[in-house]
Design a protein around this nucleic acid. Sequence first.
DNA 1: GTCTATAAGATGATAGAC
DNA 2: GTCTATCATCTTATAGAC
Lengths: 207, 207
Amino acid sequence: MNPTKAKLLTATAQVLREDGFAALSARTIATRAGVNQALVFYHFGTVAELVDAATRQAADESADRYREAFAGVTSVGALLALGRELHERERAAGNVAMMAQLMSGAQGSPELAAAARYAMDRWTREIEAVLGRVLADNPLAGVLDPAGLARAVSAGFLGLELYEGVDPAGAEQALATLERLAVAVDVVGDLGPVARRALRSRVKNLA
Amino acid sequence: MNPTKAKLLTATAQVLREDGFAALSARTIATRAGVNQALVFYHFGTVAELVDAATRQAADESADRYREAFAGVTSVGALLALGRELHERERAAGNVAMMAQLMSGAQGSPELAAAARYAMDRWTREIEAVLGRVLADNPLAGVLDPAGLARAVSAGFLGLELYEGVDPAGAEQALATLERLAVAVDVVGDLGPVARRALRSRVKNLA
DNA sequence: GTCTATAAGATGATAGAC
DNA sequence: GTCTATCATCTTATAGAC
């Protein structure tokens, strides 16, 4: 990989994270990369193609970190602890903010929508795998399919990130409640046989 | 209200909804409003102030519609049915997309962040009220505080809207799973006295 | 209140020197 | 591969005629 090309990719991610989609331009990116503006077009053709490449790369790296971290998780409790930690870490790295910016920018551009879809797919694939393991013997498993839940979790992180930029206290409150909801799902999984049977029979009618 | 001013406000909302935050400019807005570009600055001073005014107005109208619709709802089942209908209607109107665009644009602009926060507050206030009523005698009430849950729901809608623009099928799948989760919460609220007691004692330790 | 004209700057993108 | 210089086009914002 050409060093200038690499610099442009990481600079694009930085601008997207810190200043938002609206701040993206060949000049802002090149300045942050410490290279000449014309090199954006030499290496990537257009600004949109650079953004596409940068976000796909970031999504790959991010998803790979998810996979490693999720590898040994088999209980809801462990997933929650890890989830909170991972959430803080990814937040600090700015990956969620970057994806949120990508998604909003993608609304007006079919080319970027493809990159955004790719990024979401990479995330949900990892989350779906761990959710499938964790929910395997929960009586709510028939209701909470891992695929749908993984997508809901990914979308939820996007929304929370946007919300956090606007009202940090409110976002924290929302996150705390969601964690409690997850704990409640776990508690339901630990219910005694009587309550468990009662719940399962009722749940069966929903699926 | 000056008719030109009104036209600019609704045109701003339209551009934000249909073309996204990146497409906002005095010219795109004025063209859609059918008025001269200079009038943006005469009536609102800057483009940012126009966007601020337009999104506050839209949030007010949207929240007022929520309030009316939520007024008579007292059960989770009724809220879910209404929620799905409302979600479709607001989606078609483009209000959620507009807020999502506002939130992402707000990341780079403190002035817009205030407007975004105002919009989120108006939404969560209505949702919190109806959630408080609906969850009043659910054994999970101690875990799912209405304030946090309302914020989570608002943020969730934002994320789902962004996701939908990128992958409609995935977003629908996520929404379906979330609805099932809400139904499960309702089922828990309808549990017999034995299971209910077992759940409540376990839940008590979490709060 | 609304218009035209215009200033002053940022943007994507290209041509051509090195 | 990298640079400078340049283009047409877009932007916010203002001045001044009507």
